[in-house]
Amino acid sequence: MDILVGWWDDYFWGSVVVAQVFVCSLILMIIFGLIGAAAKLSDNFIAQKLANGYTIVFRGTPEILVILLLYFGSAIALTSIAQIFNPDIKFLDVPPFWAGTIAIALIVGSYATETFRGAFLGVNPGSIEAARALGMSNLQTFIYVRVPEMWRLALPAFGNHMLSLVKDTALISIIGLNETLFVAKQAIGTTGEPFIMYIVVGLIYLGFSTIITLSVMGLERFGQRHLVSSQ
């Protein structure tokens, strides 16, 4: 363990980066997923086609490719826009944090689109009819009947999406994000100990996965308490 001395704080800050990417990409992923699901469920033909295109592209392309494309692609786009105002600019860098976060949110959001869509369609139509029959308004039905039921249906898959987000964070190290895998590479450069350095990275990610899994299990139990029969 002596070789790890001096690297703990780097790993710690790398973990903080992982957590930051996770939180930001989670928010974006939910937004992308909800927009995608709403578009697929809408009556608008163009919205449906666009949403279908979105899921086909991001579910059919390797994650690493999306990250590379977004990173290098946006850098070039930004540079050429900047050159209109100032021709002296040679190259504008895009922060890997945001390129990566948006990339993995787009990828996992394409899966979340299907999850949210399925959950919306999975709500028992009888419950909705019953709420209408009791005189509840559209909004009330949505808030008190549809959302709680959707939430319960979507949660298991949603938990997997969160795990994907946290694990995909490691891919962003390829474009230079200073998360734990990136830290390990630097540490290996000086210590020449790849095995132990990468194992630490694995353990850190395993820790993140465990926290997410346990939280989802807790939420699931909470969401299903009405399904526990009295027997």
Binding site: K167, Y198, G202
Partner: peptide, 15 residues
């Protein structure tokens, strides 16, 4: 299932 596949690849190849 709890660790990134990239980390798994690096452990096998470099570690």
């Amino acid at each position: 299932r709890g660790t990134p596949i990239l980390v798994q690849i690096f452990i096998v190849y470099y570690g």
